[in-house]
Structures are given as C-alpha cells and as structure tokens.
Amino acid sequence: MIDSVIDFLAPYTFLIVGAVKAVIIAIGLLSSVPLLVWLERRLMGRFQVRLGPNRVGPFGLGQPFADSLKLLFKESIVQNSADKFLFYLAPAVVVFTAIVTFSLIPFGKPFEIFDQKIGMWVANVNVGILFVFAISSMGIYGIVLAGLSSNNKYSLMGGLRSSAQMISYELTLGLAALGVIMITGSLNLQEIVDAQKTVPNILLQPLAFVLFYIAGVAETNRAPFDLPEAEQELVAGFHTEYSGMKFAMFFMGEYINMITMSALITLLFLGGWHSYIIPVPDLLFIGPLLVFSVKVFILLCILIWLRSTFPRIRYDRLMTFGWKILVPLAMLNLMVTSVFIVIF
C-alpha cells in the first residue's frame, strides 16, 4: 500500500519539495516581520537615548504581537469615493510581490537528506537577478494603485512621488548590479555566490556596493528616502486612507522588502554564505545558513541605523541626486569594470 503510494508520488517529488519550501518561506517571512518591527523600535529607542517598547513580555517582545492583534481586529474603513476593487488590490500586490521576490533568494549551500538533494531556495532561476528586478518593479504598482484608488490628493501625490523615485533608483540598482554580473559572467544568484569563494565582490566593486546600497535604501522607501510618506507634507502619503489590516499589509511589504534587499546585497557583494575570516563548519545546512543570516542581520541593523541618523532629503534634491550623481557614477563604474575585464 505505502510502496504503491510512494511509487505513484515519485515523479512528483520536485513538486512536493517545492510546495513545502514555498510554505516554509512564506510563513517564515511573514512571522519575521513582527520581530523586525520590534528590533527596529528597540534599536531606534537606543539610538535616540530612550528605552523603546519594554513593557509587554520580556524585552518588550510581546509588543509586536499585541500590535498585530490590534491591527487585525481594527475596523477596516473604505471611503465611498474610493475605487473599491483597486483599493483592495493594492496592499495585496505589495505583499505578494514582496514574498515572490524573496522566493528567488538562495540562502545556503544545497545539502543532501534522505537521498534527496535539497537546495536552500524556492526557485533557482537561470536569470535569477533579472527576475528579482522584474518582480520588484511590479511592486511599484501596489503603491501607485493605492495612491490612485484612494481618491485623495495626498495619496495621489504620495503614489506619484514614490513611483518616480522607484523608477529613478531602479536604474542605479540595475547598473550597479551589472558590474557584479560582468565579473561573474552569470545572472544566476547561486553562481554569483560561488564565484566569491575566496574574495567577496565588495573588495572588487566597492563603488558598486555603495551605489547599490544607497539605491536599495531608496528602492525600499526607507528613511532618508521615505518621501512617499513624508508626514509633514503628505499626511501619510499613499496609505493615508488605509486602516486596520490593509494598512499593516503595506508595512509587511516594506519590511519584507528590507529583508530581501539585505539578502540581495549579501549575495551580490558580501559573498553570501561563505565565511572569510572565521571558518564555519557545514553541519548539514546550519553553518552556511548561520553565516548568511548574520550578514543579513547586520545589514538590517545598518538600515535601521540610517533611518535614525539622517534627516529626510528634499524631493528635488532626491531626484537630482539620483539622476545627476548616482546614475553617472554607476555608468562610470560599469565602464571601468568592462575595461578591466577586457585587459585582464
């Protein structure tokens, strides 16, 4: 009986493994969002010489759960003038694209268990990094649609600003990543990591790293580039009219994007799961996963540090900075890299 079931399922093993991996990633990501919110609030508290949330549970760890419960049970208000369908669609697009983007991130060496070779990723696509950019550019629509469907001028301005900003900085992001792609000669994220076994790309492409980091911060709409939700001018930007869980979904999208961007920087520039100075044993999959997680964690902390350090940039300065400084620098980096590749 069991043998026949196993025989029947054998050709579909890849489907079962894939589904299990997808579920693990989706649940893991969604449950890491409250923890990240907690981390941000605690660290922000420290940076600003105050305590941060510390009343609910040990170290205030209960706070994010209390907050999410509150948001879940909050009344969801949809104003009459809104375009209902698009109003509901927008937060879903944001969260969906954020999770799908992360599914393309490999976060460890493939390992073998029960004669099954299991890779630490949901999908290993040949054009991996392009796919990441494609799906994350779909994420803009969530914000644009939220701005459009709310029927509110602050939302509209927020949506307009954010789409302009994301389009501008996507260019820098792509050009900076191209330097790494040219060195490796592959678009596959796993091969890019494998090529950094001895030297991480940050030493070969320091300028590209800086550009990618700045553009990445802008791309995730984080301070100092959080113009779309500049509260002094725009109330809350594109999510002014959203309340309850739909409002929380925009935040979920933003925090998942933060994790994805940190993971992408780790893969492209910091050597992914390779550890350089301290040797780390493999231990099935725990060693590489630990190295990768530590790198991502440090990058996340730097993102939070940036937010509490820098004031928001003025909007015209943001555009000038993007188009007149970052893009030419990225092109220069690309040219220098290609000259070096041709010579050596």
């Binding site: 550019s137 644009v144 701005g147 459009l148 509209l156 949506g159 307009l160 789409s163 389009i167």
Partner: peptide
C-alpha cells in the same frame, strides 16, 4: 508605469 503616470 508611464501610462499610470499620465493617468495620475
């Protein structure tokens, strides 16, 4: 996105 821009 450009289409959306024009509409907005």
């Amino acid at each position: 996105v450009l289409f959306m821009f024009v509409i907005m």
